[in-house]
């Protein structure tokens, strides 16, 4: 319990210091573009909790989850296939390297051409950006499957579906999860960027609207909200990670103790 308390204190310590600093440094600010934190916090509830939560935040998150989900599904399936087949890897690797090197925001205008400016475009942008970390990490994870374990699975004549589920995916899960975590932060960035280009709602759209309307405290409150959403998503992700990888994390703890 004591260590838990300490960990919580450590985690919130720096944010508390920074916010306090911001609060006092900005307290007397008369600059139009740098409103006092107090003003930002005051506008927060009326800006976001009355209506915009449903009209902007929810659509953004829905696009994020769909795009991210599509990326995870394709990334893991393709990653397993590439990881298992050397021929496929040799064939696809140069292309993948090229596609990966392309910054996803660049694709927004291109995707707009065929996917329009609706939700499909945003989901496509998010998915295209999110796919690379999870795909490449999955390939590495699958390639690193222990030979002895693979031989064991073969010698007991485990069927292909069982081998995929019990051996391949579980073996690669630490790397897949690492990729999924990186993908998630890429996804949040792309969610905002895609909404800044052409949109009629969403967090990115709202922030740009405020900026264009010179509603500075509202704009800042949007930036704060984005940060908060990022933190919440990462906390949820960590909980999921701790559950999926409980065997792996326990082994690591044991090895560290030795």
């Amino acid at each position: 319990m004591n260590t838990l308390l300490r960990r919580v204190l450590f985690a919130v310590g720096l944010p508390v210091i920074l916010v306090t600093l911001w609060w006092f440094v900005s307290a007397g600010s008369t600059s139009f573009f740098w409103p006092p934190l107090r003003a930002i916090v005051e506008t927060f509830p009326e800006t976001w909790l009355s209506g915009r939560l449903l009209s902007d935040v929810v659509p953004s998150l829905v696009r994020l989850f769909i795009g991210y989900g599509v990326a995870l599904a394709i990334g893991i399936v393709a990653g397993v296939a590439l990881g298992l087949s050397r021929t496929l890897r040799d064939y696809a690797e140069p292309t993948l390297e090229f596609l990966r090197a392309m910054p996803p925001p660049v694709l927004v205008p291109v995707i707009m051409l065929f996917a329009g400016i609706g939700d499909e475009m945003k989901v496509a942008v998010i998915a295209l950006g999110c796919i690379w970390p999870v795909l490449l990490n999955t390939v590495e994870g699958v390639r690193a499957i222990d030979e002895v374990l693979a031989d064991t699975a073969r010698s007991y004549r485990l069927s292909v579906p069982t081998r995929l589920m019990t051996l391949v995916l579980r073996s690669a899960s630490p790397q897949i999860v690492t990729g999924a975590r990186q993908s998630l932060s890429v996804g949040i960035i792309l969610m905002v960027i895609s909404e800044m280009f052409a949109a009629s709602n969403g967090l990115g759209f709202a922030i740009v609207q405020f900026q264009r309307g010179f509603e500075m405290p509202e704009m800042w409150s949007g930036v704060l909200l984005l940060g908060l959403i990022g933190v919440i998503l990462s906390v949820i992700f960590r909980a999921f990670e701790a559950w999926v990888l409980r065997w792996y994390l326990s082994i690591q703890r044991i090895e560290q103790r030795v």
Binding site: E147, T166, L167, R170, S173, Y248
Partner: peptide, 22 residues
């Protein structure tokens, strides 16, 4: 030609032949 029925193998590397997530 492939692992036959009715044959089991015990490997030297016990730590690597058991599924750690099971």
């Amino acid at each position: 030609t492939s692992p036959p029925e009715g044959m089991a193998i015990v490997f030297q590397e016990y730590g690597r032949s058991l599924f750690p997530w099971l």
